[in-house]
Amino acid sequence: MYRRTIPFIISIVIGLSYILSGALPEISAWKNLLDKWFQISTAFAVLIGAISLSMVHFRNLRRPERLIYSTTLIIALYGTVVLGLIQTSKGELYQTWYNMTIVPLEAAILSQIAFYITTAAFRVLRMRSLEASLMLIAAVFVMFYNVPVGAAVWQGIPVIGKWLMDIPNTAAMRAITMGAALGASATAIRVFLGLERSYLGGGE
């Protein structure tokens, strides 16, 4: 009952409130209250994640091969929390900590994409069929339309690249997005009507 029925009733009530609140002002005020609860519960969910992460990494402290990584993670996790509580996010040490760790690390992780895309392009973009050849030609125009060397080689490259992005790409994206949006709304309706219960933890 507590594990399935109550969460199930909550999801139906909230789901229907959301569907109807778009149209009915009476329900809109109730939905505003739900929005506040959602914002608060989202913030609390971070705590659940921190507990799970801590459980895994405190356990890893007993494994010598993972000791150094887990220790680093625990220091980073709790160090940031303590610094934030003492100094707020505007404190000098907090800012230095952020600028010298998260900024370069995230930028470095993102920059890996360039390396992986280069190898993927080498491996995948081959003229195996007519469709693959068309894709390769389109890829070349779109790639060079966004960098100065494209226009420097030939003024037509940015024009064709932009056309490819604006017309064929937009048409395909619209079709995929509409299909996906219908799929998403059907999934949402299924949840709201209580026909979908996998989010309650699965099982019969």
């Binding site: 280069t118 080498f122 491996r123 973009l125 081959r126 003229m127 060079f144 960098v147 100065p148």
Partner: peptide, 24 residues
């Protein structure tokens, strides 16, 4: 950063040509 972008795109283009030549 724009020059680095241009050169990296040229490298991808060269690799695409090499990949296709080797394929054929």
């Amino acid at each position: 950063g724009m020059d680095a972008q241009s050169l990296s795109h040229i490298l991808v283009f060269v690799l695409m040509i090499l990949g296709n030549v080797s394929y054929f």
